[in-house]
């Protein structure tokens, strides 16, 4: 945790001190540049409508990136976030269908969805922290298991979400789109979570597991807590995916796992743990979204789009890592 400034650090000039305090600044800068570029290529892309669309599509990735961040805080990693999101997606779709698709059934299904995400997170935490398996391979194994479970619940993609659900997600209340309320609620939630003991403890564990243990922290419980938090946020991401696609798909989240890792790094958090912010991850998820829309608006031929996106994300990752390290080294 670099926010605790030592005397030597203060001597190292304003930029470094600023970066140590706000590690997401490079990501924020990239975000602004991308917004400007988007505006240049397609002025319409900065309209209220387009920005709403952007948030609606990428709110899920923002939440997945946040989920991943809490695990990375403690120097762990979760390659099953996408699979958890898929599992929650099909669970709530099937439940909402089963219970008739009314308002109350939607709420009940969402409640179950959060519990499913929490359970998956606890399983991950158990195998990684309690059984001490290596996080990368262990969460890959659990992701296969969760995917299998999702396939049991809904073997093929396509069951539709109740109208009330996606109408709400894509709807507007008092002139403001629902997703902005959701984003505001997320911001408040993240602000509160950053002040909890668990967030600090996760960072402490990531900074040095042995040191944290020797100073009396329940390291295993804390790491399990990180994974549990991750599972819950993956479930919230699944709600957004469901709202955006309005249907169930047992494989919908698979592609998003690696993007969530990329977003965490891009947001200035260290994969080695002990340093980072969730705000950075949220910004980075938007960056990935903006890169995709910029590649589109810049008139890239359709079959080149993936390649250019890949290059742009790699370049952004490089810039992000290079700049944020200057704040810490």
């Amino acid at each position: 945790m670099t926010s605790i400034s030592s005397p030597t650090r203060q001597d190292k000039g304003g930029f470094r001190a600023l970066l140590g305090r706000f590690p997401f600044l490079p990501a924020l800068l990239i975000l602004v540049v991308l917004l400007v570029l988007n505006g240049i290529f397609e002025p319409n892309s900065l309209s209220f409508r387009s920005l709403t669309g952007l948030v609606r599509t990428y709110l899920a990735l923002m939440l997945l990136a946040v989920a991943q961040t809490y695990v990375v805080y403690a120097a762990d990693i979760d390659l099953s976030v996408g699979a958890i999101a898929s599992l929650v997606n099909v669970t709530i779709i099937v439940l909402m269908q089963h219970w008739g698709g009314g308002g109350l059934s939607v709420l009940a299904a969402l409640g179950i969805g959060v519990l499913v995400g929490l359970a998956c997170g606890l399983v991950n935490g158990f195998v990684v922290a309690a059984l001490r398996l290596q996080a990368i391979v262990a969460t890959f194994a659990t992701s296969i298991f969760f995917t299998g479970l999702a396939l049991v619940i809904l073997p093929v993609a396509g069951m539709p979400a109740p109208t009330v659900f996606w109408r709400t997600y894509g709807g507007t209340f008092f002139g403001i789109p629902f997703v902005f309320y959701a984003a505001a609620a997320l911001a408040i939630l993240l602000y509160l979570l950053a002040r909890t003991r668990l967030a600090t403890q996760l960072l402490a564990v990531g900074d040095g597991q042995q040191a944290a243990f020797q100073s009396g922290l329940p390291v295993t419980a804390i790491r399990i807590g990180g994974y549990a938090l991750c599972g819950v946020f993956a479930a919230l991401a699944a709600f957004c995916i469901t709202g955006d696609t309005a249907s169930g798909d047992p494989l919908v989240g698979a592609k998003m796992t690696l993007f969530s890792v990329a977003a965490v790094v891009l947001g200035g958090s260290a994969l080695s743990g002990g340093f980072g912010t969730v705000a950075g991850s949220v910004i980075a998820a938007l960056i990935i979204g903006l890169i995709n829309s910029l590649v589109f608006f810049a008139g890239t031929p359709s079959h080149w789009q993936n390649f250019v996106q890949g290059l742009a994300i790699l370049a952004a990752l490089m810039v992000g890592v290079l700049v944020s390290r200057r704040g810490r080294a």
């Binding site: 690696l258 890792v261 994969l271 390649f307 890949g310 994300i313 790699l314 990752l317 490089m318 890592v321």
Partner: peptide, 16 residues
């Protein structure tokens, strides 16, 4: 750049 990140980014480029 951490290997996980570098090779992950490269995977994206290769897929494109």
């Amino acid at each position: 750049i951490p290997p996980l990140v570098m090779t992950l980014g490269m995977l994206g480029v290769l897929q494109g």
